[in-house]
Amino acid sequence: MIIYGVALLAVCTLAGVIIGDLLGVLLGVKSNVGGVGIAMILLICARLYMHRHGGMSKECEFGVGFWGALYIPVVVAMAAQQNVVTALHGGPVALIAAIGSVLLCGCTIALISRSHKGDPLPDEPLDQGVSIAPAGGR
């Protein structure tokens, strides 16, 4: 069911925003630090956990995939609303947090892609119902 995808996305988003706000308070920055990125990582981890432990039906997996794909434009829209110049004037903490979150996300993606050994794709048959007449033939 697609509604499970919405519920999982909402929980991950709320948790990411709360953790991002807490990081902002701990670092002395008056804004959310990496909350959207944290929410995306939580969504990926929750989906993988549910898939491995059999807690995700085909419909639920479709819903999570659908809303996960829509989540990227939301992240871009939220990032476009942030004032980067003000964050950089706030001190080097914002720059360090930005670089750290990018590195952490990159390492997480690399770890996930290296740890998941999927089945190889089947070979496609060469003849797909299209016949090509030889040159000079009928």
Rank of each mutant, 00 (worst) to 15 (best):
P73E: 11
Y49L: 01
S115F: 12
M1W: 12
G55K: 09
I38W: 00
I19F: 09
G129N: 07
Y4P: 07
Y49G: 01
A79V: 09
A133W: 11
A39K: 06
G137V: 10
T13K: 01
G90A: 15
L121Q: 13
E59R: 08
Q128K: 12
S57Y: 05
V76Q: 05
L88N: 14
V6A: 07
G100V: 12
K58T: 11
G5N: 00
D127F: 14
A10I: 09
R138I: 02
Y71C: 07
G37E: 00
I132T: 12
V75I: 14
D119Q: 10
L26S: 12
L104G: 01
D119N: 12
H51M: 15
T13R: 00
Y49C: 00
L23F: 04
P120G: 05
H116D: 10
L121P: 08
Y4A: 12
M40E: 02
A10L: 03
P73N: 09
G90H: 08
A39C: 11
F62P: 04
A79R: 06
C60W: 01
I2S: 02
G28H: 12
L121A: 15
V11L: 09
V74I: 15
M56V: 03
V17Y: 00
G16A: 03
I2G: 00
G34Y: 00
S57C: 07
L22I: 07
L14R: 01
I72S: 09
R47G: 07
Q82A: 14
I3N: 07
T13W: 02
D119Y: 07
G137W: 05
G129R: 09
I18C: 06
Y71A: 09
T86H: 15
T13C: 04
E61Y: 00
V102K: 03
A79I: 07
L23A: 11
G68Q: 03
M40Q: 04
R114T: 05
M50A: 15
G28F: 10
S113A: 15
G65P: 08
I44G: 01
I72H: 04
D123W: 04
I132D: 07
V64T: 06
G20W: 02
L43C: 10
N83C: 04
S31N: 10
A110N: 11
I109M: 13
A98E: 09
G55T: 00
L126R: 09
L22Q: 09
C105Q: 06
T86N: 15
A46Q: 05
V25Y: 02
H51W: 05
A135S: 12
A15I: 04
V130L: 07
R138N: 14
A10C: 02
G55M: 12
G35K: 01
C12G: 09
V85Y: 13
G136M: 12
M40F: 06
L9D: 00
A46I: 02
Y49R: 01
I109V: 12
G5L: 01
K30F: 10
L126W: 08
K58A: 13
K58Q: 13
A110C: 10
R47W: 03
T13F: 01
V6I: 04
V93R: 11
G106K: 01
L104Q: 05
V130E: 03
L121H: 13
D119E: 10
I132Y: 11
A135Q: 13
G63Q: 03
S131F: 15
A46D: 03
I3Y: 06
K117M: 07
G54C: 10
Y71K: 05
K58W: 06
V17G: 01
I19P: 05
C45S: 11
V93T: 15
A77Q: 10
V76F: 08
